[in-house]
Design a binder for these strands. Structure first.
Lengths: 348, 348
DNA sequence: GATTAGCACTCGCCAAGATAGAGTGCTAAT
DNA sequence: ATTAGCACTCTATCTTGGCGAGTGCTAATC
């Protein structure tokens, strides 16, 4: 905020160097690598100032400086420009593998690995939230004995299925009739409306289909809930490449955290409201109390509504410029692919 | 094979102790903990014999003995009896969390975590192979524009869906007619027969439905292939608890291997033919060239046909007796749950 | 008043040595 | 065949001292 130009330059130099090398940066190294036109003694004074302001710190008395979380924050907010010098990054992205999963799940998995490979961090994707989906079709298929499979289709092509037991007296023909009836009543309605409608109907309906109604109600809930809960983590082993996770204890904690996907979900959901790329540094994030980890998070769309979150989790010392680019690119790519899939069937 | 009774007892004592403690076992420790009625010097001679026969080895001159892979093999084949003293294990299993995923995928994920938690190893499950599944129903649902969703249902309740583009002139009504036609022609046939039938039909059929036929053909392939490829890994972080993976390099290799699920699939598929629990020790397994890892693998059924493999991967130094129990138990549990789900709808 | 040179001081890292402990292998006695 | 005893080996751990990087302070300089 209140940094003069020279201080800014020094801070940036320190952080850039530290990100590149991973070891604390001393005044002499800095004066050699960059040309500030001042001596190492002056740099020491400047660095001492920056430390007092909270942007840098010391691992121990006679070591160089490393950025604090606050330092990284300032770096992200004020020092890096994502726009310029992105040619080489773009070029890098050109060589990236293409995504081509024709199944939604597969696409998500591929994309999470894609993120991981390009960012050298773990890639995380929260499946698109289907709150805007509309009812399209329901199908009841009788299997063996009492078993019936409910297949629930939404307008954007999500298929949810569920196995239930029902009275054997209900025949496939009856089921078909009921399915046609529901299609007529519910078509084009949002899932919320569908549920309300079903509740209303259940009050007046004949008893035979009561159970089917009830199960349909549950299935419509599942579509929303279960899909929403899906978190895809790809390439977690990428993070093991970083020397900061040479510590086994840290690594273990990290993987434990990854297995608790629910927490990750909460974490990523928090940022779903905002547009654009967000960066969470180290302790800034209350849900993921992992020291030394940062997240770069963005949103992707399918159509006009915001529907999903994606991002990467990596060491605080990461190549932010590049990673931000990768997340941005992937978000756009996914938006495009999902758009093609769900929305623009018309103009193809 | 050609070990006398005392040698066997010593070998078992060494391996048991090593599994429990994790550090090499010396003659004095052994003589203190067990009562062989001989002195440490005699034990030294015996252990030297066992080493010569290849069952034990030395990390270095003045260290105790640890088992070789061959030693473990002998231990598994001849020394442990899974039957007896299983009360405490059974009891342990009683407290295990229940599985209740009503979605096949969810069930697999739960079960893999279940395995991991109880065995302190990584749990791995290969989804049931659907080669025995029969055709049950197909549904075409028109979404926006040219898009049509194909929903393919097999007799055991697997639902596969696929999005395709078709000519806009084909109406939902036509699709329904075609679906009814296919249902009639293909009902109760195996997937292989379905594919053959479709090929035959395509030669004689009118052109309009050609594409749908073709896509249906692909979908039937997908059901088999894609489901077969699914490998679920749960609780991989359990393995990090073992001190043998304190080495970061090993850990990294392990997680890399886990990410390459295809290899795991091959590995597990090898043992799909045999009934009962199998143990692969260390280097015995050509596909998973991970030193110091063992696998305990079993099969589970859905109905009368063998359909899936499950198991755990952990350090060679694992609690085999307990782990074998857990894998066995989980296999039976899964068989029961899947049986309930797919087969025995009648008698419920 | 900002900048710089100089210097004492601090701290972590690393290699070298010292020590203790665990365990073996061999030999000679039982 | 078994055992006691002993020399030997190897590891793990602790200590020590030197090295190098880097800081912080002070006094001189621009």
């Amino acid at each position: 905020m209140d940094l003069d130009d020279r201080n800014k330059k020094v801070l940036q130099a320190v952080i850039d160097s530290y990100i590149a090398s991973g070891s604390p940066i001393g005044s002499t190294v800095l004066v050699k690598r960059f040309d500030f036109g001042v001596s190492s003694a002056t740099l020491r004074n400047i660095m001492a100032d920056l430390e007092e302001m909270g942007y840098l710190t010391h691992p121990h008395t006679s070591a160089g400086r490393i950025p604090t979380d606050l330092g990284y924050r300032y770096y992200i907010d004020s020092l890096i420009s994502v726009e310029n010098d992105s040619e080489d990054i773009e070029e890098h992205l050109q060589q990236a593998p293409q995504l081509h999963g024709d199944d939604l799940q597969e696409l998500m998995e591929e994309a999470s690995r894609f993120l991981a490979t390009l960012s050298h961090c773990a890639g995380v994707i929260v499946a698109p939230s289907e709150s805007e989906a509309a009812y399209r079709h329901i199908e009841f298929v009788r299997l063996r004995g009492r078993q019936v499979l409910i297949i629930f289709v939404t307008s954007n092509g999500i298929v949810q299925n569920k196995l239930i037991d029902i009275d054997e007296s209900i025949r496939q023909q009856d089921l078909n009739g009921f399915s046609a009836y529901l299609d007529e009543e519910l078509e084009h309605r949002s899932l919320a409306e569908v549920r309300q409608q079903l509740i209303d109907k259940m009050k007046e309906e004949k008893l035979v289909f009561m159970q089917l109604m009830d199960e349909t109600y549950r299935a419509s809930q599942d579509v929303q809930e279960r899909e929403n809960e899906k978190v895809y983590i790809g390439g977690a082993s990428q993070m093991l490449e970083s020397p900061e996770f040479a510590n086994v204890e840290k690594m273990r904690a990290l993987f434990k955290a990854f297995e608790d996907k629910y927490k990750l979900l909460k974490l990523l959901d928090r940022s779903v409201s905002a547009q654009g790329i967000k960066v969470f540094i180290g302790s800034e994030n209350p849900y993921f109390e992992m020291q030394g980890c940062s997240m770069v998070v963005g949103n992707y769309n399918a159509g006009s509504n915001v529907v999903g979150t994606l991002g990467v989790i990596g060491p605080t010392r990461m190549q932010y410029k590049q990673v931000i680019h990768v997340v941005d690119y992937t978000a756009k790519l996914l938006t495009k692919l999902l758009g093609e899939r769900f929305q623009r069937g018309l103009d193809r």
